[in-house]
Design a protein around this nucleic acid. Structure first.
Lengths: 232, 232
DNA sequence: TAGATGCTTCGGTCAAGGCCGAAGCATCGC
DNA sequence: GCGATGCTTCGGCCTTGACCGAAGCATCTA
């Protein structure tokens, strides 16, 4: 079955440490240059270039040329979901690893973006708050925004209609967090919420990583709106 | 970051043609012996044995000893979802491949199991029927069983409560079909439906593959209950 | 036009791992 | 017990591909 070969090729593309590092870095949804990706993956630019070429023809990465820079990003949300699910399994497999959490790791666990939505301690706390306040309902399979949730998002100025084709009820997707092992909010609703937090200046990206920092304004807002205390 | 290495290892485990073939075969949710898996993957038993050992320590496969047989199955639903998502990306990447669909491929496209739920032409047709009749609502992110849907499943004798912790609304998960490129019904609801079809004798597994055949009784039932004509 | 910067291609080295044949254990049936 | 069957381990062959240094191309700046 030829299909099988394609499957193996896609999986093996993600199965190299160098490429895995680059894909990991791209999981924040932004587009990065080859040199940046080489640095985070700990390889030389020419090696990264070869990897990126393979990832591009393999359909995992899309590249956009801009002057002398070439910006690379994940080719589709489907790729992001695939990486998420691999991280999921990897987290299950992973050793206890209690000790040795570097500061960088620490920041990632506190709050990070997961392609287009929020994850980490903050992401889980937000999902928890929304659930306990009755704004959303979540199972391991799916989620729904309740009427009060819709109202809340409306007052916050989050446009759910724009992101997903709304028809009657608003559905959303839970995403099991690899660091917290509990679900956070993904899908179009999660993306809209993340985008809102970002544009309102409640959170901002830390240097060139997926980690995000909560601003002072964010601390206040998260407390006021969602009743979330100190996070991270 | 040590985490990255685990990620790459998990992905590379799925990234070998031999292992991919075996994992693909295990996607029907059943447990198979090493020899059976070797045959479907087209490798010798001793090679398969080595692969299976790696898959086991890697946490992708669980093994159960029974007499002189050792039955292998996917270690968790998370692994199944990971494989699904890889197939998803692989299908996007895949060439047009219009010609050259073997009879085996044909059967898979008509109807197959996807770990614990139904996929292929039949799976999509079922999802379509349930949606157009207002029994479920689906987006790309999530799904919900309506009141009439709950009633329908009740009269059919499908116990939704047993599979997922029911709390008020019943949520379910859509799963994009790699052959049809449209969503079919997954999650606990999809699993319950598939289990019901199987136990009622509406469908049955074809030899040792993921393909399922619709029985005569099934043809009648699918028409009566869901209004689905000839499928496949 | 000249130099700096980002990126890719080329060439060669080298380690990882997939593959099988043969042999070794375990378990079942008789 | 004894052979048959399922599976694993061992040893050796061989392909794949990851890696980097050096050089080449493209684009921006001055």
């Amino acid at each position: 079955m030829a299909n099988n070969a394609v499957f193996a090729e896609v999986a093996s593309l993600a199965g190299d440490p160098g490429r895995a590092g680059m894909l990991h870095a791209l999981m924040d949804g932004r587009a990065l240059t080859a040199t940046e990706l080489a640095r985070v993956a700990g390889i030389t630019p020419q090696t990264a270039s070869g990897h990126l070429a393979r990832l591009t023809v393999g359909g995992l990465v899309a590249v956009e040329k801009q002057g002398r820079h070439r910006y690379h990003r994940l080719a589709s949300p489907a790729v992001a979901r695939m990486l998420e699910s691999i991280m999921q399994v990897a987290a299950d497999t992973a050793p206890p690893r209690k000790a040795f959490v570097g500061p960088r790791d620490q920041a990632l666990r506190a709050a990070r973006t997961c392609y287009d939505h929020l994850a980490g301690n903050l992401g889980v706390a937000l999902a928890d708050a929304l659930v306990t306040r009755g704004h959303i309902e979540l199972t391991s399979d799916a989620g729904i925004v309740t009427d009060t949730g819709t109202a809340l998002f409306d007052t916050l100025g989050i446009d759910l209609d724009a992101t997903g084709k709304r028809k009657g009820r608003m559905l959303c997707r839970p995403c099991l967090d690899w660091s917290e092992r509990r679900p956070h909010l993904a899908g179009s609703v999660g993306a809209a919420l993340c985008k809102h937090c970002m544009s309102e200046g409640w959170i901002k990206h830390v240097d060139g990583s997926r980690a995000v920092a909560i601003t002072v304004k964010g601390q206040r807002k998260f407390r006021e709106v969602f009743g979330i205390g100190s996070v991270g």
